[in-house]
Computed example of a mutant assay.
Amino acid sequence: MVAIPVAWIVVISVIDVLAPPHIHLGPLLVAAPAITPSFGGPRTVGLVAALAVIAQTIIGVLRDPDELLSANHEAQILALVLVGASLVIFCVLRDRRARELAQVRYVSEAAQRVVLPPLPKRLGPLRTASLYLAAEAEAQIGGDLYAAARTVSGTRLIVGDVRGKGMTAVGDAALLIGAFRVAAHRRATLDELVAYLDRSVCWELMEPGEAGRFGETFITATILEIPDRSGQVRMISCGHPPPIVLRGGRPMTMSAARPAPPLGLGELADPRYHVESFPFEPGDLLLLYTDGVTEARDPDGTFYPLAERITGWTENDSDAFLDRFRRDLLHHVGGHLDDDAVMIAIERPAVHQT
């Protein structure tokens, strides 16, 4: 790539020297250092700018040997020096910004691995795949959350979405995940687990001295209990988008008949948690997600029609399904999400494998 601006300098210099006296092509030399930052760093830009200055000096000497350098050529040389110096400074600042951005990405990826690691590929007899798509270009984690815990008879999962954005939402998500991991093994029933999580959000996410500010922080969530043996999945929905079971390419939305309020509003609503159930048989695929999926818009403003898009998909492998799901969602929005999105695919194999 460096050969392009160098060749440009050589061509312009030769033509300018051989051209009639009234034709001056020297100002075109500025294009050489101007295009170099697109592929080169400060040193490369400085080298090309220096070559352009040398070329302009040679042109001036050869065209006006009697006067050595005319005022016009001196002005062009000064302009090349100023442009070259400005471009070098620009490249230094750009590279510094790139290093800072790389550090931010490294830290965010490390935080994600600690706070929100991918689900294990196997949870008892279940096969799982999880994906977090962050809306922020420089971050890999936001306010969406998920976690899983094994019990003696099955698997408990939570998927949720914290109200708000930024580092506060990340902290709230981390706290709820921690509370879930602690309590999922200890709470005998699903409604007891959800009541404990609601109290955790009400009290632990509240700022000191703000006992009267209930409702400021809340988290929509779906908590599920999937038995190891085929049977009914138990679920409590706290204002979260419903799971979808894909059976033979036909999606079935498992909407809660009696949804509970989001976690963190229990002190206001005094909820009585109602446990819903739905079948999840061998060969089925269970899809969990956050509203970053269903509220994703295409350039025309149309929401992503989840159930319609996955109708007819026959991928029973959770990884293959999630990969197709990700590509289809990003294609719908044109490659960029406006909100974080979590996607989890859970497969119950048709034949139990150890």
Rank of each mutant, 00 (worst) to 15 (best):
F325W: 09
P262N: 11
R247M: 01
L285Y: 03
A307H: 03
H274A: 14
L285C: 05
D270S: 08
Y304A: 06
D300G: 06
G301Y: 01
P279N: 09
S237I: 02
R297W: 05
P259E: 04
T294F: 06
R272G: 12
E281D: 08
R247P: 03
T290F: 07
R272M: 10
D317W: 01
F325N: 06
P242G: 11
T311L: 06
S318E: 07
S318Y: 02
E308H: 04
F278R: 09
R324A: 08
G312T: 04
D284T: 05
N316P: 08
E281P: 00
G283F: 06
S237V: 04
P299H: 00
F278A: 09
L287Q: 03
L246W: 14
Y304L: 05
A256I: 09
L268I: 15
A257T: 15
A260H: 10
E315C: 09
P262Y: 12
I310G: 02
C238E: 04
L263N: 14
L285I: 01
D319C: 08
R250E: 14
P305K: 13
A257Y: 15
E295L: 12
L263P: 14
A260K: 10
A307M: 02
R272I: 10
L286N: 00
D319W: 04
D298A: 07
L246R: 13
A296S: 12
F278C: 11
E276K: 06
E276S: 14
P271Q: 07
R309M: 10
F303C: 03
T290I: 06
G301N: 03
D323V: 02
A257C: 13
A256S: 15
P305V: 05
G301D: 03
D291P: 14
D323L: 09
R297K: 14
M254N: 07
C238F: 10
D317K: 01
A260V: 09
M254A: 12
P305R: 12
F325L: 12
M252P: 08
L306Q: 00
L268H: 11
M254I: 07
E276T: 04
T302K: 10
A296M: 07
T311P: 08
H274L: 10
G292A: 14
P251Q: 02
C238Q: 08
A260D: 11
R258T: 07
